[in-house]
Amino acid sequence: MVTKNYPDPKLNEKLRDRYYRRDQSKPEFTKAVREISGTMAHMCYQCGTCTGGCPSAPRSTYRIREFMRRGVLGLDQEALTDPDLWLCTTCYSCTDRCPRDLAPTDVIMAMRNLAFRQDIIPVNFLKTVQAIYSSGHGVPNNDVNRAAREKLGLTRDPPTTHMYPEYIKGIQKILDHYNLKANADRIVKEREG
C-alpha cells in the first residue's frame, strides 16, 4: 500500500490507496483456512450461490462470497477485522448448494478461529465459555426453572453437571488445556473493565 502522509488526516483517509497489490495476499492465510475448514476453499469460482440463499445477506452487508474471495486471495486482515464475519448463522444452506462442493460455512468457522487467535471475537461467545467453565452449561438452570421442574416431577436440577458438579473439574481441565478460560477472562476484562 502506498502511504501518502498528507497533513490532513481526513484527506489521507479519503484518498487512501485502494489498489490491490500482491503483497496484501498472505498465502499462509489461504492455507490455514483450507486446513482448519477441511474444505477446498481455494477452489471457489465466485458464482454467488452462497450469498444468494444466505439468510443474513439480505439484511446486512454480510457477503459470504466476499469472504470466500478473501480466502482465495489470502486477504487476512480484510477478512478477520470485518465485523460481518460474525453474522453467519451457520445454517449450512450455502454448503448444501455450493456447485463446487465446498463448505463456505466451515470457511467462516475457520476464519473465526483465526480471528480469535488475534483476540478478535465478540464477547457473547466468551461469556458462553465462562458459563460452561463454572457450571458445565452454556444456558444454566435458575430458581424459577427449578421450581417448574419440581412441579413436573423432574429433579430440581437435571442429571447433568448441575446434579453432579464433580464432573465440572474435568470440563475445566479441558478448557484450561487450551487456556481458553484465562483468555476469555482477559479479553472480557479488556472490553468491559
Binding site: 468457522m109 461467545f125 460452561i132 452449561h137 442429571p159
Partner: peptide
Amino acid sequence: LEGASCCPAPGAFGSIDLNVWYAMAAR
C-alpha cells in the same frame, strides 16, 4: 446421561476453537 454438560454450543465453541469443541463434545 449423568454428568453430561453443554454439548458444547457449536456456534460459540466452533467459532472460537474447533479443537476445544471436539474435546468437549468427546467428553
